[in-house]
Design a binder for these strands. Structure first.
Lengths: 141, 141
DNA sequence: TGGAGACATGTTATAGCGTTACATCTCTTT
DNA sequence: AAAGAGATGTAACGCTATAACATGTCTCCA
């Protein structure tokens, strides 16, 4: 079972290893983001025993572009790029009331950031954009 | 000694408490970002003994807009807003080679993000924008 | 004047997130 | 069969952050 043949952020679904498939399944089935330890607890019945098993799988899944890390939460979500846009331009709106996360692709904003980077000679390998606040539903409640 | 009378992200320099002043001094004198524990170690000779002393001061300094938290590093930097722009629109370019951090204010990008949020009914209380990559100097080397 | 309230501080313990180091297993290739 | 590469298992540890509780230090005002 191999999980290679990948350049970087490929759009093809790679052949996942057993652990990668289990971790992705946990994230894909979850409503919101999960921490590594939450995933570990969920996968104990599948034989998971140590954090490293989760982190190793997460590293690969992020590399494949199938999972995003939310820096401001120290948590992970399965990728739901609306319209199947580039994984490079992902941004997240995180509701601090209900914990929901919306993924979106602010391509115009990303262009502006890239323009700044180009002008400064900065080569960005990853761009993190996260909005923390209150979602529509929670604001209405 | 008081450190109040603040609405939110005031531009006035508040009267800092002893601990706040020490922590801010450490960050302001540092070349790059510092973790809370690095600050703690640096302030042991000033009587600091526990992480909480640092975190309490950091919370206030962030609230005052004098310090930014870098989510992707779990570290903190003194604010160096070029041109004294709003603390609300701060972004950071973090070099993974040399550890340097450039703060900038991509107001156009922030406007685009705010427009998305408005359209979705999302009220953002904080916006995190961090570029990870390679700075000009390190690319040249 | 002395007590109440508000805020800052001190201290210990603990919870949560992530990695190092090392051993083993399973395939593929030759 | 031997060698190499990648995946996995396990234990121990280190870094990041907070909970809970105790104490100190002011100001205000009855």
């Amino acid at each position: 079972m191999t999980a290679h043949e990948h350049t970087h952020h490929d759009h093809d679904q790679p052949n996942l290893t057993k652990n990668q498939a289990l971790v992705f399944g946990a994230l894909d089935g979850a409503e919101g983001p999960l921490t590594a330890y939450a995933i570990l607890d969920q996968l104990r019945e599948d034989g998971f025993r140590a954090p490293l098993q989760v982190y190793r799988a997460l590293d690969k899944l992020v590399e494949f572009g199938m999972v995003h890390r939310l820096e401001s939460l120290n948590a992970f979500v399965a990728c739901r790029h609306p319209g199947c846009v580039s994984h490079e331009s992902a941004a997240f709106a995180i509701c601090e009331d209900c914990g929901s996360v919306q993924e979106f692709s602010p391509e115009e904003a990303m262009r502006v950031l890239k323009a700044w980077a180009d002008a400064k000679g900065f080569t960005a390998s990853k761009t993190t954009v996260e909005l923390r606040g209150r979602c529509k539903d929670c604001a209405a409640a």
